[in-house]
Design a protein around this nucleic acid. Structure first.
Lengths: 348, 348
DNA sequence: GTGAAAGCGCTAACAG
DNA sequence: CTGTTAGCGCTTTCAC
C-alpha cells in the first residue's frame, strides 16, 4: 500500500499536476507525457486513493442504504436491485440494517452522513418513530424512501401501489367464490402494513364481502404459522386469506397443511411480494409481484434529481404491481391450476 | 452540509486543536472548554467528516465484503451476521455482489481497494479464476475468505467442515435404510461444490453403499427442480438424495411432489445450510445447519489478526455443522417424525 | 501544455 | 493545558 500520484509523477519525470491530468484524461497533455505517466502508473501498481479524491471533490461516489433487515427476502431483492443500478454509474453501496429498531436506524443514518454518502436510500422501519431522523437526513443529502415511508410525506418515496395490489388480490379470491376473507399482516408500525390494510378494507367493501377482523403480527414465517394456527382454532375458516407478504403466506400454508386443511379447495391463500421461493412452496403461491427492479431504478433515478436545499414538492411514485396466479387460489371457473410450478399465469 | 471543526472552534472561542481534543476526548482539556466546545458543536449541528478523518488516519473504519450473489439466502444470512459483528466495533460494511462472475469480482475488489477498506471479506465465486485478484488484494489489505475459497490455500479462510457435514447427512439416510443415494449439487467451479462432493464420496464409500453419479448444476431452486425431474425420468429412484444446498433441496422436493413421489416414504431428501424457509417447506426439510454466526464472528476476528506483509501461515478454520432432522428423511426406526414443523430434532 | 501551490477537514506533533 | 502548523493524496486554479 502506498504508491501515490507523487511517486508516479516522479517516475515519469513530470509534475503531479500533469500526472493527474494524464491519468484522468480530463485535460490536455502531450500524448508522449500521457504515455509515460500511464506506463509509470502501471509499473508501480498505482491505485488512486478514493478517500483523498473524495475529500478534494466533496463527493464520495457512495450511496448509503438502510433497510430494516437483510433476513427478509423482499429487502434482499431490493438491495440487490439497487446495488445493480448503482454499478451502472460506478457508485458503491454502503449497506446497513436497522434491525427494525428506530434507535439503531438513527445511529446508522448518522454514521452514513458522517461518511458523506452522496445519497441515501432508506426503508424506514417505523411510520412515526423514524420520522425525525429521516427528515433530518433528508435536509443534508438527497434521500429517497423505498417501500416503507414515514408520516407527513416530507421525503420522496417510491413503492408499490398497495390499493391496486390489494384490489387485485381481493377481486381474485372473490371471483374464485370467496364470501369471507381475512387479512393476515404486520402490526401497523410501518407504512406498508397500514396501506395494505387500508387497501384490503377498501377492496372488500367495494366487493361487498365480509372482511373479518385482521390478524396483525409481523412480516415473518413464524407469525404466518401462528396466525394459521389461530385461524384453525377460532372457529369456522374463512374462504380466503390474503397475506401482507409471502413469508406470512408460507408460514400460514404450513399451518393449514398440518391442520389438514386443503388449499385451495377449502381455503384460498394469496401472498404479497413474489419472492424467489413463492413458486416453489407447496402448493406454489398465488401472490402479488412487487416490481422490484423498477422500484430500484426509479429510486436511483430520483436520487439524481433531488437537490438539497432546493425546496420542491416531495415525489411519490407508486408502481402498479401484478397478480401472479399460481395454485393456492381457486379460479373463477371453480377448478385449480396445473403446471410445472415454476411460472404462474399472470393477469394482464 | 458544511459545518467544520473550524466553525465549532470559532464559535467556542478556542483553536481547532482544542476543539478536536474536546470532541474526541483523547486528550486533556479544561472541563470548561470541553463544555463550551460540545455546546457549540451541538448548536451548529456539527458532524465530523469521516472522509477527512480517514485520509488523515489512513484508516477508514470500513470493511469490504464481496459475495457471489445476494439472492442466495445463505449469503444473505452471512452478510447479515458479518454486518452485525462489525457494528460491535463501530465499523461499516461496503457490500458488493460479484454476480458469480470473476471479472466483475476483480473489478469490485479494485474499487474496494481504492476506497481503502481496512479489510476484505470475500466468498470468491470461482475456485480457479478468482485466485489472481484475491491473492493480489490479500497483499494489500487483511483479507479473509468465507465459505468459498480459492485454490492454493494462500489466504485465510473460515467455513464449514464439509466432510463432517456430508458424513452426517449420508450416515443419517443410511441409518434410515437407504441403500442407494445420489448427490445433487453445483458444478465444480467453486470450492464448496468440490468439497461437498468429495465429502459425499468419502462418506458413501465408508458406509459401503452405492453412490450413483452426482447431478451437478447450480445452487438454485431451478436446478433442484430440474434435477428432480431428471431423476423421475431416468429410471429407478434412489432411496435418498443429498443436496448441495437448501435451494436445490426445495426445488427437488417440488419436482418429486409433482411426480407423485412421497417424501420421505419413498425417497429421503437432505439439504444443506438450513436457511429460514427450510423449516417451512413441505415437508419441513432435514438439513445440515451452517454455523453462520460463528463463521461471521470468526471471520471478523481473523481479520483483526492479519498483518499485511507479515508472512504467516494462512489460517483455515472449519467449523463443524449440525444435522437438523425434520421430516424429509426416514428415521432409523423406520417411522417418520411429527412435530410443529418449526424446530427439528437436532443430533448431538 | 506544464508546474507550483492552495486547500478539502482532520489530528498529531511541537512549541509555548 | 492550549495554539500553530504540517500533512494525509488528490485536483484545480493560476501563472507561465
Amino acid at each position: 500500500m502506498g504508491v501515490t500520484i507523487h511517486d508516479v509523477a516522479r517516475a515519469a519525470g513530470v509534475s503531479v499536476a500533469s500526472a493527474s491530468r494524464a491519468l484522468s484524461g480530463r485535460r490536455k497533455v502531450t500524448p508522449e507525457v500521457a504515455e509515460r505517466v500511464k506506463q509509470a502508473a502501471a509499473e508501480l501498481g498505482y491505485r488512486p486513493n478514493a478517500v483523498a479524491k473524495a475529500l478534494r471533490d466533496q463527493t464520495t461516489g457512495t450511496i448509503g442504504m438502510i433497510v430494516p433487515g437483510i433476513g427478509n427476502p423482499f429487502f434482499t431483492t431490493i438491495v440487490e436491485a439497487v446495488e445493480h443500478q448503482l454499478q451502472e454509474t460506478g457508485r458503491d453501496l454502503l449497506l446497513c440494517a436497522s434491525l427494525y429498531t428506530p434507535e439503531i436506524e438513527a445511529r446508522r443514518l448518522n454514521t452514513l452522513l458522517a461518511r458523506r454518502v452522496d445519497g441515501l436510500i432508506i426503508s424506514p422501519c417505523d411510520f412515526e418513530a423514524s420520522a425525525p431522523a429521516v427528515l433530518n437526513a433528508a435536509r443534508q443529502v438527497p434521500l429517497v424512501q423505498v417501500d416503507r415511508y414515514i408520516e407527513g410525506g416530507g421525503a420522496d418515496w417510491v413503492g408499490v401501489d398497495d390499493d391496486s395490489a390489494l384490489a387485485q388480490a381481493v377481486d381474485h379470491v372473490v371471483a374464485g367464490g370467496a364470501r369471507s376473507v381475512v387479512f393476515v399482516s404486520s402490526r401497523l408500525m410501518n407504512s406498508s402494513a397500514r396501506l395494505r390494510l387500508a387497501g384490503f378494507q377498501l377492496a372488500t367493501a367495494r366487493a361487498g364481502i365480509a372482511a373479518r377482523s385482521p390478524l396483525l403480527g409481523e412480516f415473518t414465517l413464524a407469525w404466518g404459522f401462528e396466525a394459521g394456527r389461530s385461524l384453525l382454532a377460532d372457529g369456522p375458516l374463512p374462504d380466503a386469506v390474503v397475506c401482507g407478504n409471502d413469508e406470512i403466506a408460507v408460514g400460514l400454508l404450513r399451518a393449514l397443511r398440518l391442520g389438514g386443511v386443503r388449499v385451495p379447495e377449502e381455503v384460498s391463500v394469496v401472498g404479497f411480494d413474489d419472492v424467489g421461493h413463492a413458486a416453489m412452496c407447496d402448493p406454489p403461491l398465488t401472490t402479488v409481484r412487487q416490481p422490484v427492479e423498477e422500484m430500484a431504478a426509479e429510486a436511483v433515478r430520483l436520487l439524481g434529481q433531488v437537490r438539497v436545499g432546493e425546496p420542491r414538492a416531495a415525489q411519490r411514485i407508486a408502481i402498479a404491481p401484478r397478480l401472479v396466479v399460481r395454485e393456492t387460489s381457486r379460479l373463477a371457473t371453480g377448478g385449480t391450476m396445473t403446471g410445472d410450478g415454476q411460472e404462474g399465469r399472470e393477469t394482464t
